[in-house]
Amino acid sequence: MSRATPAPSRARSARAPATTPAPAPRRAPSAVPRHYLSLPHAVTVELTVLELVKDGLKKAVAEQAFMCVYGDAGVGKTFALDTVLATGVVPARQARLGRLVPPPAPTPAALRSHLADALNLTDAHSENPGVFDTALRKTLAARDHLLVVDEAQRLDAACFEYLRYLVDDPDTTVAIVLAAGEHGLAVLRRQKMLASRTAVWLKVPALTPDEVRWAIPRFHPLWQHSDDSALEHLDTRLCHGNFRRWAQATHHALRLLRRPRADHSFSGRAVLEDLLDARLLPHTDAR
């Protein structure tokens, strides 16, 4: 998880220890989304982004509008959305949740099919677009819906227009969250119809160095007793405040600790330089 900085909104705007870690508290299987690589003992860190996402979702649902969430790959956009939605406190009006990840370059016809699957519309599949649209609009009018579209930059203008058509229908009650990478923001910005229909633009940036020192020891027991200089060194060299990179570094470090005669001291820089550098490709600092 990472913190977040809300961008100016638009017209409808209100944005380890060395030893084996102790087992984490058991949770209900659906309570929290899994961490990257299903990292054992990883903990969801309560950073500002969760509250910002929660507030943004409430606003989007209340206004039946779009919410655009963007940021560099791996900073925690999808994890933040999943974490907040898993709490059950959002959306406020108990909207039915649908989720889809469009394939590259989807057509409106393909989007219709994915929407039917995402919203469990088993009786809405039809080769006739008009019949399908009527069934979909009837479903969206029956109760509140929240649709989360990950990798939204894959959509083209025709697909965005179809989503606009669903939001603008006077009988439907649907809010749509569009999540995109930092480079995908340009795709969203080009869609003029989003300007007046977006309740929140929310940027999820990488962790700052101060946040790394605070959050990473809480993220996983492996780093609880690492000194600040070691964390700063690994972050500067490989992770750059990116939670996915930190999950990768933790995954590789845990594997190394399981080796016979492994050096179990992760408090200094030597192990990080000699062992992790060879396992993580260089990463650009987006901060």
Rank of each mutant, 00 (worst) to 15 (best):
A116N: 14
A110K: 02
L140T: 08
P129C: 10
L115M: 15
L147V: 08
L155Q: 09
D123G: 04
C159N: 05
R137Y: 06
N128D: 15
P129M: 11
D156I: 02
R137G: 02
D150Q: 07
D123C: 04
R143E: 15
H114R: 08
A158M: 01
P108I: 10
A105L: 06
G130T: 14
L146K: 03
A116C: 15
A118T: 12
D123P: 01
T107N: 00
R154W: 12
T139V: 12
A158L: 00
P129E: 13
R137Q: 14
R154I: 07
F132D: 02
A105I: 03
H145K: 05
A124P: 06
H114D: 15
A105G: 02
R143Q: 15
L136A: 12
T122I: 08
F132E: 05
E151C: 02
A118P: 03
A158W: 00
D144S: 10
L111M: 15
D117E: 13
H125S: 10
L140G: 04
E127M: 06
R137W: 05
C159P: 02
L119S: 09
P104E: 06
V149I: 15
L136I: 14
T139W: 06
D133W: 07
L111Q: 01
D117P: 03
A158C: 00
P108Q: 11
A118H: 11
P129Y: 13
A109Q: 11
A142Q: 13
P106E: 10
L136C: 12
V131S: 04
L155V: 07
L121W: 12
H145D: 09
N128I: 08
D156W: 01
T134I: 05
A110L: 04
A157C: 02
R154V: 07
P129V: 14
D123T: 15
L147A: 08
A118I: 11
A116G: 15
F132N: 03
L115Q: 07
R112V: 05
E127T: 13
P106Q: 11
L155F: 08
P129L: 09
H114T: 09
A118Y: 11
T139R: 15
D156F: 02
D117G: 10
A158P: 01
E151F: 03
A110T: 06
L140R: 02
N120H: 14
D156K: 01
A116T: 13
R143M: 12
A110D: 10
L111P: 00
P104K: 00
D156L: 00
D150G: 03
H145Y: 13
E127Q: 08
P129K: 07
T107A: 00
L155S: 07
G130Q: 13
N128R: 06
L146M: 14
H145W: 13
H114V: 07
D133T: 14
L119C: 11
A152R: 01
T107Y: 00
G130Y: 09
A141P: 04
G130E: 13
Q153M: 03
T107K: 00
D123H: 14
A141G: 15
A152E: 06
L111H: 02
L140D: 11
T134L: 04
T122D: 14
A157H: 05
A135H: 13
P104C: 03
N120D: 14
A141L: 06
S126N: 11
V148K: 03
E151N: 09
A124H: 14
G130I: 10
P129R: 08
R143C: 12
V149R: 03
S113F: 05
L115G: 03
